[in-house]
Amino acid sequence: MSPSPSIIIAFSTLALFSILMVAGIYNTLVTLRNRFANAYAQIDVQLKRRYDLIPNLVETAKGYLTHERGTLEAVIAARNAAAAANTGAAAHPGDPSAMKQLASSEATLGGTLGRLFALSESYPDLKANTTMLQLMEELTSTENKVAFSRQAFNDAVMAYNTKREVFPSNVIAGMFSFTVAGLFAIEKPEERLAAKVSFA
């Protein structure tokens, strides 16, 4: 006995609807993933600018801080480590281990920069240097831009992670291996604060 036409129609309609639903969820997950990848691109631009500014800053400070070579070298080393971590993170934005690596090397960089700024407080000539003032302003602005872009990135990661954890999209996420994305968190906020210097 063959199944009646109405049953065939009912089952094919059901199948069609489930395919459409799976496709819809899959597309939403892809959209959300692209969104946080794009948000990371914004951070990447600012971080690169920051890594470009730091050697200039060190170069300018060198003439004044002749007895602080250790600090200057530490800043450059931390800058190079952070730039490498950013290259890794930019290749796989949202990859939890890459993001963690970036966050910790950024924290180290913030800490060494903070020490450099604290040192420069006792060198009035350096504080009055026009190039130094301009670099400080650019660095402050870039820091702020990183901070604001990081908020947008973390919001986008949160939206993606939530979508991939709730039912029914978690089933689709598991089937097509949408992995969990990592936030760009600040590791030691007090070290970042130390890098904030205002001349006004």
Partner: peptide
């Protein structure tokens, strides 16, 4: 310097 700072602050707020 003042105008540079203004431009920077506006760019920051555009991102935020």
């Amino acid at each position: 310097p003042g105008e540079r700072q203004l431009r920077n602050v506006i760019e920051e707020m555009a991102i935020a």
